[in-house]
């Protein structure tokens, strides 16, 4: 058996194949991201029984339903606090939050901010497709200023989150951004992050041709991927200003922060238990 075939079979064992085909539109980038995640898990040789995946609500929120590990499809915005409870109660488990931009940063923004501040030992894979896809294409907290959506018919007056900047400002020890075009870099980044501790954030810029691209002159998946390819610049030492995303503008990608040795909440609490038991 070839190595590729071996990896494919291992990835397949991490999927609830009986549930396929999935709900995502053809050309959607969530599947690419999920595949990169599962390949990284295979490469990292993580025991599937020691891995829990938690999602919120939305297109990306459906990811938990397809992974063949302990997996939870929770309420809108609450994947992070759910994962916090799970991780804090079982610090030996690998806990990954796999959810979308609206879920994590609008309705769930307060949880993101505070979980990052406390430095819970959780990996957050944040799929950013610039839009609320499941509900039909309303603008969200990451929609670029000026973009057209069903709730910004004259262009978006709102300002998008700069997710890596946000994560770094809160002290997150690992913060990266890739697009679905950067398949290997994304997979490598998830692989690295799986070996790190603390609140790790990987933003994945992903195409939604169905309800984002078609209203913003990128009607098909290929055009969106072309845009990611042509406009992305790898710059690991980017400034916060450079990390900002603009409408149809440059996308600065890279691993913007990767530091080790910051104690996690879970580690600090072990010390609390020791002190309380004295």
């Amino acid at each position: 058996m070839s190595m590729m075939e071996d990896i494919r079979l291992k990835v397949e064992s991490l999927l609830r194949t009986e549930r396929l085909p999935h709900v995502w539109c053809s050309g959607c980038g969530i599947g690419i991201t999920l595949n990169a995640f599962l390949r990284a898990v295979v490469r990292a040789n993580i025991d599937p029984n020691q891995l829990a995946v938690v999602s919120g609500i939305g297109c990306t929120g459906r990811a938990a339903g397809y992974v063949n590990v302990d997996s939870f499809h929770t309420t809108h915005g609450r994947a992070i606090p759910f994962a916090v409870g799970l991780k804090f109660a079982r610090p030996d488990m690998h806990v990954v939050v796999f959810s979308g931009d609206g879920d994590l940063f609008a309705i769930g923004g307060n949880h993101f901010v505070n979980a990052a501040r406390r430095n819970h030992d959780i990996l957050v894979i944040a799929v950013n497709n610039f839009i609320y896809g499941m509900t039909g294409g309303q603008h969200g907290p990451t929609t670029p200023t000026g973009a057209f959506t069903t709730t910004t018919p004259y262009g978006n007056p709102d300002r998008p989150f700069n997710i890596p900047h946000l994560a770094i400002s809160l002290g997150a020890p690992y913060a990266a951004r890739w697009t679905t075009h950067h398949l290997m870099q994304l997979q490598n980044s998830i692989y690295t992050a799986l070996h790190r501790k603390g609140f790790r954030v990987i933003e994945v810029i992903s195409q939604c041709p169905t309800v984002y691209g078609r209203r913003n002159s990128m009607r098909d998946p290929l055009t969106m991927m072309e845009y990611f390819k042509k406009n992305s610049i790898i710059k690991h030492d980017a400034t916060f200003e450079e990390m900002e995303l603009t409408y149809n503008g440059k996308i600065v990608v890279g691993v913007f922060r990767d530091v080790q040795g910051i104690p996690t909440y879970e580690e600090r609490y072990e010390d609390i238990i020791r002190r309380a038991k004295k």
């Binding site: 606090p81 916090v84 991780k87 804090f88 901010v113 609490y269 238990i273 038991k277």
Partner: peptide
Amino acid sequence: PQVGGRFIEMEDEIGSIAAIIGASWTGVKA
């Protein structure tokens, strides 16, 4: 912590209940 349990003050009540649901899935009484 005296009895080996865990306490966390969350950012709000929504986070609090989400956390105890997540914790309960580990088998702990929450």
